[in-house]
Design a protein around this nucleic acid. Structure first.
Lengths: 337, 337
DNA sequence: TACCATATTGGGAACATTCCCAATTTGCGG
DNA sequence: CCGCAAATTGGGAATGTTCCCAATATGGTA
């Protein structure tokens, strides 16, 4: 199916002009006679002329495109963050290429290839839970293409990052549980490969420490975020000789699944066991019982990340400002505690 | 921030070859001496060489990119459909540029501009609720760039479409309500500009007709999908002299909001009023009470649409096969009825 | 009417790659 | 050791645009 694109040259021929003049008219250059410009613009409109960004990008070495790589699309988290990022990006004249790595390191590497081949001006990345090696991301640094991490960041690289205060959020959540009388608080944590899990776990530990509650290793479980496994771990917790009276889950999907498991066992939430999540997903206020959780400004995270990225892109020299923006969280108390 | 890309010519110079030979080696052409190919490949690897798709696309007039334009990202519907589409697309070697029109006609038009400028090989579109004029989409047809509509389709254009059997789904939902003893069933419908609203409304009417229930215009409300207005309409329905004992909402977010409004009025769902939605969003099974709804194979819709699009793209001649794929729905009965 | 400054236009090169056609090298049989 | 076919390689056009520099046109003034 070959189609002939309408080019600047077609317009030039039709009007007996040179491509240079047409180009100038189209790009709004001043040194074009008003009549000429008018004629060019009208013909362009009539012929559905569209400038070929490929050619322009080839010359300018700029595509006005940013890439976004996220690990998944299942929870509302990443779609929401993307909305925020797109909002800022499109306002600044950037379009977005979105790739989803499906929590697979291999796919993430493939995604970066796509981004490079497509000559994106910069990328926004949230890594998979499997990612241990960062060579595929360091290539961008080496080539001078800005990277900004958000949510799941890579500590090895000196680039801007956007996260929330996971430590503080977790601390406040667990602190609340203790102050409302819970004695044995379990934590269903994320994989240790993710800094985010670590920070939330540290918040959990700190809150216990503050109240002189000794850390019971039995109540601290790291899992791989594969939601199907929640059942195994929660069941295990409930079967302990001295089972917990509260569970702090690393994120909302985990918390929601935890509640389902607890109820299937015939126990009540929050009477028998309180449950707290992290993120305040869209669903969390709607479920039964509504979930107590730590909310984070997800859209704002996306916005901030995009902003930082675009700043980097427009910076003339490559002075990798390695800022880390830490956004605030808020404890939302609902009926699950 | 100027960066010099590693090009095929850099490699050629380094190895004392011509760019032609390097190109052949890189693209896996047969007529290259094995030693040469080896050397080229090694150097390319060492230099982090990445082929510049811009240049290639410029020549081949093919970008291996498809565009996706959706009206929103708030419900889980479109993200899920996109996952399905991306799955198929990336398997076929296509990357995706995603735009979100935010239910605004203006933005949708702007999005199509971006797609054209980026020379996408085809687009997947779900129109906004405002879209009445389709010129911006017809441009693609005129230029020979395949379009496939999904979910929110445009009847004016003879192109492939992917929808679900909205009529049948609505019919079954309302039929179920009647057979379980509901007498006055209201329908909170979508805007009449969308075919999808019309089809669901027709299913609603047909079910009433089958059971000889006269259509009460008072119980049939079309609204613009602006979720904040649900409160007004539901309150209005509840204030009727003869209020409904069931509400069939055009989609799940509307149904969920409807439940909230009913409950705020002190009425019970389903005892006082039954509520049914449409789509089976991820949240719908988790809320209180779990929502009875018509489920549709959302991911499959995305997959099918992408498949149709890629078929169109690889077709040599432009014989616009205007198939409409209609996928099946299923009634999921839960506690809200 | 000639001349100069300014306004407008034209003619390439450049961007990174592919691909066709021509040039060169290689290898083998006579 | 020559010649010819096959194997390799090189050169240049083409893709659609921008941008620099040169060329031409226009208008006002002496």
């Amino acid at each position: 199916m070959k189609r002939h694109q309408v080019t600047i040259i077609d317009i030039a021929k039709e009007l007996n002009l040179s491509k240079s003049t047409v180009s100038r008219a189209l790009t709004g250059h001043k040194s074009v006679k008003p009549d000429t410009r008018q004629a060019v613009l009208e013909l362009a409109e009539k012929l559905d002329y569209q400038r070929n960004m490929l050619a322009i990008s080839l010359i300018t070495n700029k595509t006005n495109t940013i890439g976004i790589i996220v690990p998944e699309f299942k929870s509302s988290y990443f779609p929401t963050a993307i909305i925020g990022a797109q909002e800022v990006a499109s306002k600044a004249g950037y379009s977005t290429v979105i790739c989803q790595s499906d929590e697979s390191y291999e796919t993430e590497v493939a995604n970066t290839r796509v981004m490079l081949a497509n000559q994106v001006d910069g990328i926004l990345v949230s890594i998979t839970k499997e990612t241990r090696n960062y060579d595929h991301l360091k290539i961008f640094q080496r080539k001078g293409i800005p990277i900004v991490f958000f949510n799941r960041v890579c500590d090895e690289m000196e680039v801007p990052k956007v996260i929330v205060d996971d430590y503080d959020g977790a601390y406040r959540a667990v602190n609340y549980l203790i102050e409302s009388g819970r004695k044995r608080i379990a934590h269903l944590a994320g994989p240790s490969s993710l800094k985010i899990s670590e920070r939330r776990m540290n918040g959990y530990k700190a809150a216990l420490r503050k109240h002189n509650v000794p850390l019971d290793e039995e109540l601290l479980i790291s899992y791989d975020l594969n939601i199907e496994k929640v059942k195994i771990y929660v069941t295990h917790l409930l079967n302990l000789d001295n089972p917990p009276d509260a569970i702090f889950a690393v994120n909302d999907p985990t918390a929601i699944e935890t509640i389902q498991v607890i109820r299937k066992r015939g126990l009540r939430v929050p009477e028998d066991i309180a449950v707290v999540g992290f993120s305040n997903d869209f669903v969390s206020g709607l479920i039964d019982p509504p979930l107590t959780t730590v909310s984070q400004p997800v859209k704002e995270i996306g916005r901030t990340a995009a902003q930082l990225l675009i700043e980097q892109i427009s910076r003339e020299v490559a002075d990798w400002k390695s800022v880390t923006k830490i956004l605030k969280t808020e404890l939302i108390v609902r009926k699950s505690t």
